[in-house]
Simulated scan of single mutants.
Amino acid sequence: MADLVARVLPEIDQPTTPVAQSMGGIVAVCAALQRPERVTHLVLTVTSGGVDMSALGAQDWRPDFAAANPNLPRWFLDDRTDLTARLAELHMPVLLLWGDADPISPVRVGQRLAELLPRAELHIFPGAGHDLGFTHAAEVAGLIDRHLAKG
């Protein structure tokens, strides 16, 4: 995970809004923590965002994903980055997008992030799952546009 963050950081050389889904949300949060002066807004979609999801009703996706992707690097499956204690440091506006039918990152995860992030807004898509960026692309784009228009 640290290598991915290190790869992203040089790209944040001007005002930036990371938009991240699932595991990418951890990379985006880590990058925002390291470059808060350059991250103007943040969009997190069905991610852990760096909180422990086990107590929030999340289904463990790793065994099935590992079986379907046998060449996947171990770090992807083993990563348990916990950024809970640092989320209050993020003072940029954060848009949280969740589906209420996502067993991998249930709404309770989005609600927990909304509690921990000082300027977070949670939007829940009824009936949407972990792929809500694809299944609800037009609505997601509209919410992101509105989010970016906010200061």
Rank of each mutant, 00 (worst) to 15 (best):
D64T: 03
D64Y: 00
D64L: 03
F65H: 05
F65S: 01
F65L: 02
F65P: 07
A66K: 11
A66T: 05
A66E: 08
A66N: 09
A66H: 07
A66M: 06
A67C: 02
A67K: 00
A68Y: 05
A68I: 00
A68G: 05
A68F: 04
A68P: 06
A68W: 04
N69I: 02
N69A: 07
N69K: 04
N69G: 04
N69V: 02
N69D: 03
N69M: 05
N69R: 07
P70R: 09
P70I: 09
P70Q: 11
N71S: 11
N71Q: 14
N71P: 07
N71L: 11
L72P: 00
L72C: 09
L72F: 07
L72G: 04
L72W: 07
L72Y: 07
L72T: 12
L72Q: 06
P73E: 01
P73F: 00
P73Y: 01
P73T: 00
R74V: 10
R74S: 11
R74Y: 05
R74E: 12
R74I: 07
W75P: 01
W75Y: 14
F76L: 13
F76T: 08
F76K: 07
L77N: 05
L77K: 01
L77H: 00
L77M: 02
L77R: 02
D78Q: 12
D78R: 10
D78K: 07
D78P: 00
D79A: 10
D79R: 07
D79Y: 07
D79P: 01
D79E: 14
D79S: 05
D79V: 06
R80V: 12
R80L: 12
R80F: 09
R80H: 14
R80I: 10
T81E: 10
T81V: 14
T81G: 03
T81M: 08
T81C: 05
T81R: 06
D82A: 13
D82C: 12
D82V: 15
D82M: 11
L83D: 06
L83F: 04
L83K: 02
L83P: 12
T84G: 07
T84I: 11
T84H: 05
A85F: 01
A85N: 01
A85M: 03
A85C: 04
R86S: 15
R86N: 13
R86P: 08
R86Q: 15
R86A: 14
R86F: 11
R86K: 13
R86C: 10
R86E: 14
L87Q: 06
L87C: 09
L87S: 08
L87E: 08
L87W: 04
A88K: 15
A88I: 10
A88G: 15
E89W: 04
E89S: 10
E89L: 06
L90N: 10
H91D: 13
H91Y: 09
H91G: 12
H91Q: 15
M92Y: 03
M92W: 02
M92F: 04
P93K: 02
P93F: 08
P93Q: 03
P93D: 05
P93G: 00
V94D: 09
V94N: 08
V94Q: 08
V94W: 12
L95Q: 15
L95N: 15
L95G: 11
L96T: 01
L96K: 04
L96S: 01
L96G: 00
L96Q: 02
L97A: 14
L97I: 15
W98V: 06
W98F: 14
G99P: 01
G99L: 10
G99E: 03
G99N: 02
